[in-house]
């Protein structure tokens, strides 16, 4: 008995140690980011950093606006493409599709989720970029190489399909059967039930799914870097090249040692990403939690 108790205590203290270690490491990471980006924050005003549009490390001008707008463009385009498709597909899978369809499609979506970003990038370079350059841009009579925010947005849209679909399917499943039955028995068509009952009931959950998708899109680095063109200017149209924040970090890290404040600037970019994604996660978690409590 004593030995069993001893083993129990040993495991307990061992796991507490591991847990504390993990928590400390992760908090240390955050503090490290903060400390590293402090020199830049002390040297320049926060508003100048976020709203300045000139990026020239040699002259110590660190305006993050091109990169922030680059990220926003790409994420925005991805959302415009992915949100309607995902909502429609999720509704079809839950409301119309039978079990066999779900069993066919959901594993496919799991595979899509498992594909590494670099393969999305390869696909983007091989297919999306030429398609945008040769077919879509000429339609609008624009000259474009194809390396543009639109390509980035399309690749990102496909990348956020899996997470949005899987959360949306879960959310739509929670809509009570009674509500649907009541609406159908009043003579509404299935589509009317969907738009006027199901979507209304599930809108907060769908919003949470979208926010999760946004946070995924925000941090995506390599796939976007490969197709976006990486020109540090503010993109003015769909066919302009952009330069999202994560791509900035990935491209310039390692060569910033010679210029003072440069590494601090890149750390600030990482910190900014960290904070944005933290905020997205908190909001979507709060929404989902509220939904769970209401059930």
């Amino acid at each position: 008995m004593k030995f069993r108790k001893f083993k129990d205590n040993l495991f307990k203290s061992h796991s507490i140690l591991l847990l504390c270690l993990a928590i400390i490491v992760f908090i240390a990471l955050f503090v490290g980011l903060l400390v590293k980006s402090l020199p830049l924050l002390q040297a320049e005003k926060l508003s100048d950093l976020l709203l300045g549009s000139i990026w020239s490390p040699q002259k110590e001008a660190f305006g993050f606006l091109p990169f922030i707008t680059g990220t926003l463009w790409v994420t925005g385009i991805a959302l415009v493409i992915a949100v309607p498709i995902c909502i429609m597909a999720a509704i079809y899978l839950v409301e119309y599709g039978g079990n066999s369809l779900r069993k066919l499609v959901l594993p496919l979506i799991n595979v899509l989720a498992a594909i590494p970003p670099v393969l999305y990038g390869v696909w983007g370079v091989l297919m999306v970029v030429p398609a945008v350059g040769h077919f879509i841009a000429p339609v609008f009579s624009v000259n474009s190489t194809g390396y543009s925010v639109l390509s980035g947005g399309i690749v990102l849209a496909v990348m956020i399909f899996p997470i949005m679909i899987s959360v949306m399917v879960e959310v739509l499943k929670t809509v009570p059967q009674d509500l649907k039955a009541a609406s159908l028995s009043l003579g509404a068509t299935k589509w009317e039930t969907i738009t006027k009952v199901i979507l209304v009931k599930a809108r907060t959950g769908l919003l949470a799914a979208i926010i999760l998708g946004v946070s995924r899109a925000f941090g995506e680095t390599v796939a976007v870097l490969m197709v976006c063109g990486n020109v540090p200017g503010i993109p003015k149209s769909l066919f302009d090249a952009g330069y999202p924040l994560p791509a900035l970090i990935a491209n310039n890290f390692g060569e910033m040692m010679s210029i003072p404040l440069y590494d601090s600037a890149l750390m600030f970019a990482a910190l900014w990403l960290f904070i944005m994604i933290l905020a997205f996660n908190i909001v979507s978690r709060m929404i989902l939690k509220q939904m769970e409590e209401r059930l």
Partner: peptide
């Protein structure tokens, strides 16, 4: 209702085919 259903079917198709497109291209 019919039009909506077709749009939804198309969406499912787009999503499933995007996987096949990626793997097929590679």
């Amino acid at each position: 209702e019919k039009i909506a259903k077709w749009i939804m079917r198309l969406s499912v198709l787009v999503i499933s085919s995007s996987l096949l497109l990626i793997i097929g291209t590679v």
